[in-house]
Every structure is written in C-alpha cells, then in structure tokens.
Design a protein around this nucleic acid. Structure first.
Length: 192
DNA sequence: AGGATGATATCC
DNA sequence: GATATCATCCTC
C-alpha cells in the first residue's frame, strides 16, 4: 500500500491538465491521486471511476439548465471543485474542466484508499464522506494546498472501460452515451 | 422496494 | 412562499 509521505514527492497536476477536452481529462484522471489536507491530517485516494459531463448541451449535466448560483462553479475556470449536496444527504465532487464558461466537469465516483481513508470509498457520496469533502469546498482551487490532485510517484498501466453513466435515465439519448470510465479490475467501481 | 433529508430550481 | 426533483446510500 502506498504511503502518504509520497504525496510530497509527487507532481501536482497543473491548471493546464484540466483545461482540455473533458473526456480526455476524465480518462486521464484514472490512476491519479486525490489528496485532502486538513487539521494536520493528510487523506489520499487513487481515482478509479469517473463520469464526464459535457456542458449545457448534455441533458444529464447540471449546466444543461443554464447558469445558476448552484452551477456557477461548473461554469468557472478549470481546475476548481464543483461540489453539491444530493438527496439531502450525500455530497458529490466534480473537477471543472475545459475553458471557463464551458460548463463541463468530471464527477469523481470511486477511489482506492491510499492513506487515512476507510474502505468505504466507492460511490460518489461515500468518496466525499471518506475524504471529508463538503460544501465548504465548493469552488475550491485544486491547484491550492488543501485539496488537490497529483500524478503518483509510480503510475502503473491501466485498462480503461467505458460504460453509460449512472442515475441519469431522465436524460434521453444522453443517458446512453458511454461517458463513465473506470479502471478494469479495480474492484472498487460501481456495480452494473 | 422504499425512505432519508436539504438545497435548489421552478412554479405559482 | 410552496412544491417537485434530485449525477445516492442504507435498510428492510
């Protein structure tokens, strides 16, 4: 099991990483580490499942209903967090991608524990709970020092599987598009 | 299969 | 100001 000390020797993902095509970013986020430093504690997990949301034209994306106070962060500049509360209980975290105003983002759905996480890290709600992410992180700069992503010290080759996104049946044709990506064989991805 | 639980969008 | 709707998870 990798160690949290390795966080300091790993390369932080630069702003430019996020300022690209959303599907490209989604696929490349697999295998990267999500790190949260707070209260003198460092929590980290390896991203193994994500979903791409392609902006106002994507009927499954929150930004398809236009710019609102809630979706403001998703329309913001890349490399920031779009966090929202769902079903009154769970938080979900997205990484904002593409140029500012594009309204595109990648939902983080599952992690493999790296350090200081329990084993309840699969599923977007449990991911946020394990990482201690909530609405305080709405709009947080992922190039900052508290919540960030990095390229791990060693990044093993992975095989990427693409499938339809989960929980977006209302989105018509968009519900069928294979915009969910996960690491084959991880064992920590959503069933289905 | 259904309930929890609250922010938000979309209606009056 | 009321209400319907959730990019979910847990329990029954």
């Amino acid at each position: 099991m990798p160690d949290c000390r390795k966080v300091d020797e790993a390369a932080r993902l630069p702003r430019g990483f996020y300022n690209r095509d959303t599907v490209t970013v989604a696929r490349e986020l697999l295998g990267k580490w999500l790190v949260h430093r707070a209260d003198g504690r460092c929590r980290a997990g390896r991203i193994v499942e994500v979903e791409a949301y392609l902006g106002p034209g994507d009927l499954a994306a929150h930004t398809s209903r236009g710019r609102t106070k809630r979706t403001e962060a998703m329309f913001g500049p890349p490399g920031h967090a779009y966090v929202y509360l769902i079903y009154g209980i769970h938080h979900c975290m997205n990484v904002v991608t593409g140029p500012e105003d594009s309204g595109t983002a990648v939902l983080l759905r599952a992690l493999e524990p790296v350090c200081n996480l329990g084993d309840n890290t699969h599923g977007p709600g449990r991911l946020c709970k394990a990482m201690g992410i909530d609405l305080r992180h709405y709009g947080a700069d992922l190039c900052g020092d508290e919540l960030f992503l990095l390229r791990p010290p060693s990044e093993p080759a992975i095989e990427i599987v693409s499938r339809p996104r989960i929980g977006v049946d209302y989105a018509g044709e968009w519900a069928k598009k294979p915009l969910r990506f996960y690491v084959r064989g991880s064992g920590f991805v959503s069933k289905k």
